[in-house]
């Protein structure tokens, strides 16, 4: 063992990123929340890791894992950007099983030498070490949704349990999910228009589920249900969700996810509205 530690320490000088973690699940859980495409772009700065997944140039999901989540987090140059196969990365992170036996933790040491090098993962559980090398790819430009606070027209903070069931029961025969946010009834409404008919789900403004409700002007926007459905992965892990729309109808869903250590992490989903808005039937 000392030999291995020695070697790792020697090598750590050549890495531009070294991060270690006692419990790999604190990292993998957050990644699972955005795992709806195979490939992801990773940005690493001294503050932490941001992993971005996009689909159809219309939806973007970002997972932020703060540096504090890691026990050791060394970044020698900033920023580090690479693209990686997220499915493979998650498979490697759960190489000892995704549901570990109680009391056993898988530790992770993650190293990256820089552009063109593979991402090295050292996973250890009960004295068994697995080394994974995942090839990194040329980073691709990610979308800038230009979603800034000043243009936000409505903002809702909900306890996730109130939305969980709604998302799991979404009528997938409907092509779109229509979100209505208004200062008067129905306040916050999710509507689908499927083969069997339409469904509306109304949340009152003042209820225990609703932590905050800000809206000055009625806004009705439609989003492709197939683009929003993957956010259910983040929703089921989260405890609170912030729903914001801006003046262009862009949607921001921000999920607060608490990991096993009590650290708070955030996962963002941005989604473009559906262009053609037929006259709403409601």
């Amino acid at each position: 063992m000392p030999l291995l530690t020695q070697r790792i320490q020697d090598e750590s000088d050549q890495y531009c990123l070294v991060a270690s973690l006692d419990n790999v699940r604190n990292f993998s859980t957050i990644l699972k929340a955005i795992h709806f495409q195979d490939h992801a772009t990773c940005f690493v700065t001294k503050n932490g890791v941001k992993v971005t997944v996009e689909n159809a140039k219309c939806v973007q999901a970002n997972a932020f894992i703060k540096a504090g989540v890691f026990q050791e987090f060394l970044v020698r140059e900033e920023p580090i950007i690479f693209r990686i196969n997220l499915t493979v990365l998650l498979d490697c992170l759960s190489i000892f099983g995704s549901n570990p036996m109680p009391g056993t933790l898988t530790a992770l040491r993650m190293c990256y030498q820089g552009y063109g090098h593979p991402l090295m993962l050292f996973l250890e559980e009960g004295g068994v070490v697995t080394v994974c090398k995942i090839n990194t790819q040329e980073p691709k430009e990610t979308l800038d949704f230009d979603f800034c606070n000043t243009n936000v027209t409505s903002k809702i903070i909900l306890l996730s349990e109130g939305l969980r069931e709604a998302f799991s029961e979404l009528d997938m025969t409907s092509e779109i999910l229509q979100i209505t946010i208004s200062p008067d009834t129905p306040y916050f409404r999710l509507s689908t228009f499927g083969n069997a008919g339409s469904s509306h789900l109304d949340y009152p403004k003042d209820c225990d589920l609703m932590e905050a409700f800000h809206c000055n002007q009625t806004q009705v926007n439609r989003y492709k249900i197939s683009l929003l459905k993957p956010s259910t992965k983040a929703l089921v892990l989260s405890c609170k969700v912030s729903i914001r729309t801006d003046d262009r109808g862009f949607l921001s869903l921000q999920y607060m996810i608490k990991n096993e250590d009590g650290h708070v992490n955030f996962v963002d989903y941005y989604c473009c509205p559906d262009e053609d808005i037929p006259q709403a039937e409601s």
């Binding site: 469904s199 509306h200 789900l201 109304d202 009152p204 589920l209």
Partner: peptide, 8 residues
């Protein structure tokens, strides 16, 4: 919580 689901 006053949530109302309407199915037409």
């Amino acid at each position: 919580y006053g949530v109302r689901k309407t199915h037409n």
